[in-house]
């Protein structure tokens, strides 16, 4: 077996790693009935993160998680020199739907990390995220299964309400209007105070009453909630 080693070393020197200047990113919503609000996809330098598990969310992350507003995070990323694609799906990315985008870091080789976020509806402050993944540099196709997180900034009362940061309830954009219940009395809950893996929603089976405006047969999920494929040319 020892004889193999020189051959191996020779082999690896012959591999020319593609510099990850341009990558294609495919994002699939693999849930039963959860919608993603406009996605923010970015390549940025190492050492920065959009959130840290166990720590309080930034106000920018809170605005994304509670109302789908990615403008604050986008501003932050721009100031870091990030390469950004905002809202590649041009609106909601529905369950079973796929969107594609590209990041070209030719002009910014320090942007070696991938982050991606979007709010999940219907949730109070649930979001799907990739948090500073090192983008592969060798040519190939790489798939990642992605989890749902809770920003910890809003009580999971599971009823219609506001998408504004700090206000209770979740927003219901027009395409979801008929899918979401009403007159739920709301679960007694409080904001957890730190970002964590989302425990899921409960929902109920009564569209016009009950605790929740979420439908337990349609809007629950188990991880993973998204499949992200990075193609390095």
């Amino acid at each position: 077996m020892k004889k193999i080693i020189p051959a191996l070393l020779l082999g690896s020197t012959l591999v020319t790693p593609a510099m990850a200047a341009e990558v294609d990113i495919t994002i699939e919503n693999i849930t039963r009935g959860v919608y993603f609000t406009p996605l923010l996809v970015a390549a940025h330098p190492i050492g920065t993160q959009l959130f840290q598990l166990g720590e309080a969310a930034s106000t920018e992350l809170q605005a994304m998680a509670e109302g789908g507003d990615i403008s604050g995070l986008e501003t932050q990323l721009v100031s870091l020199g990030a390469t950004i694609q905002a809202n590649p799906a041009e609106g909601l990315l529905g369950p079973g739907s796929t969107t594609m985008t590209q990041l070209n870091t030719d002009a910014a080789p320090a942007n070696t990390q991938l982050s991606m976020v979007a709010m999940m509806l219907p949730t109070n402050d649930g979001f799907v995220a990739i948090n500073s993944l090192t983008i592969p540099t060798e040519a190939g196709e790489y798939s990642y299964y992605v989890k749902a997180y809770d920003a910890g900034t809003e009580a999971n009362d599971e009823v219609r309400g506001s998408g504004a940061p700090g206000e209770s309830g979740f927003p219901v954009p027009p395409p979801l209007e008929a899918k979401i219940g009403q007159n739920g009395t709301a679960f007694a809950a409080s904001a957890e105070g730190f970002v964590h893996v989302h425990r899921g929603v409960l929902g109920d089976t009564d569209a016009n009453a009950g605790n929740s405006d979420i439908d337990s047969t349609q809007h629950r999920w188990l991880n993973p909630v998204a499949k992200v494929t990075i193609t390095v040319q």
Binding site: I30, R32, G33, G96, S216, T217, R220, L222, N223
Partner: peptide, 13 residues
């Protein structure tokens, strides 16, 4: 798609 789990009678269905 990824299965959302079962609701069950114990959980209101």
């Amino acid at each position: 798609h990824i299965h959302a789990g079962v609701v069950t009678a114990d959980d209101g269905l």
